[in-house]
Design a protein around this nucleic acid. Structure first.
Lengths: 242, 242
DNA sequence: GAGTGGTCTAGACCACGCA
DNA sequence: GCGTGGTCTAGACCACTCT
């Protein structure tokens, strides 16, 4: 390991190197990294230092470590990604599993709100995906998903043949090499508009939960803005603070 | 260290021992623990094992470690506790600082809803504290706080002389030895009732954000149920998922 | 300078998955 | 039985804080 001008612990340098290699696709989602010994040899540090870097990567959900097997690049699978970022649950605890329907996709110029949320340049284009998410077969959430066209070239091809999966982040990862590692959410209460009432089967004037989410990739890029409007009469937004 | 019947790593056993000692008040909030060397000697394990346990305690926010100084029992200070559990913020990022006013306190029998949230026995009593929280001097949140009377003996004495601090968790810790380490929150949208409108200065029929929080102590006890009704026209509930 | 936590190393052994 | 990650140890040295 070369030392950088200002001091940075060795294990953090190893962490950075591995993040870059994962981001560059050196090992694809679900693939295994070299063993601790092999990495230590390649990077010319001790196994203990590599271990500390790998432990940090595992804590940040970038890799999976399995005793006796090896270390794997974390994958956004159906169950995993859904439970990680989809926070709607039954009151009292039980998790709720959503399905999706009624997708519509269009490409358009970015509006000021899009540019602000996604840090876009003037004149940028975006894809806008709208869909309804069902829980127990009943409409529960309206989602508007905005993606920078520059990052999602040719996204139209996923509209046909119902190829849009329920968990989009697996698709971002697999098709575009964009690993979503965190999301900033802002929640507020809002009053249902006519369109909300029609699509969610709400009474006029009902209250609903509006969530703005900006999803951040491994490299720190704002990859997605998702506005969700949720009927919270049957399900709640559940989160644990610690 | 004695080994337990079923296998548990040494450093986790050390973790458990230290949690118990902190919970028992062996070292009070803000006080320093013995040095790593001293703990290693006392528990008859290596310094590295103690270090791993202390790192885990620090990750769980139970202790603070300061290089060159020592290891301290984490304290619920004003700024810290407020930012940790109070999630209201200005849209786009800036944090919001609340103040409190209009406290009223009463002692009463627990109702079914209280018993369910706090896992109380039939016939238990609770304290109910109501207050308004202001942001920038304007009412923004109505809070109803329910505490098991069994855990908070003589809580009435804090009602007089405006002795109720803005950050209650510091008081729970200092006066009752109850360390709040996590909180489970459930959010939903609701329509403002007459009383909400009056106290929050809302228009009739406005939507507001209802938050049910159950706070959990170091020992795993449900210590507090807090129902907050928030005006989200100026501020939002902000959370980062990762 | 003394004492603390933070980093880094080297090596032994354990628990697990698989062939 | 081999290779993997997980635990535990011992010791050297570094960075920080206070006296």
């Amino acid at each position: 390991m070369d030392e950088s001008p200002r001091y940075r612990p060795l294990y953090q340098q190893v962490y950075d190197v591995l993040v870059k290699q994962i981001a560059a696709g050196e090992w694809g989602p679900g693939e295994s990294l070299p063993s601790e010994q092999a990495l230590a040899g390649r990077l010319n540090v001790s196994q203990g230092t590599v271990r500390k870097a790998l432990d940090a990567l595992a804590a940040d959900n970038l890799i999976d470590r399995r005793q006796g097997k090896g270390t794997y690049v974390a994958e956004h699978t159906q169950e995993r990604a859904l439970f990680r970022f989809f926070r709607m649950a039954r009151p009292g605890g039980g998790r709720a599993l959503p399905t999706s329907t009624g997708e519509t996709l269009k490409r358009r110029a970015a509006r000021p709100a899009d540019a602000a949320k996604l840090a876009l340049e003037p004149g940028a284009e975006v894809y806008e995906l709208n869909r309804v998410r069902l829980i127990d077969g009943e409409p529960a959430v309206l989602e508007k998903i905005v993606l920078p066209a520059a990052l999602f070239a040719g996204f139209e091809r996923f509209e046909r043949h119902d190829t849009l999966p329920n968990a989009l982040y697996a698709l971002y990862q697999r098709e575009y090499g964009l690993n979503i590692v965190s999301a900033q959410e802002e929640l507020r209460a809002d009053t249902a508009r006519k369109d909300d009432c029609r699509r969610l089967k709400l009474a006029p004037g009902a209250s609903l939960l509006h969530i703005d989410r900006v999803a951040i990739s491994l490299e720190g890029t704002r990859v997605e803005w998702r506005a969700s409007r949720c009927d919270t009469s049957r399900f709640v937004y559940a989160v644990t603070l610690s």
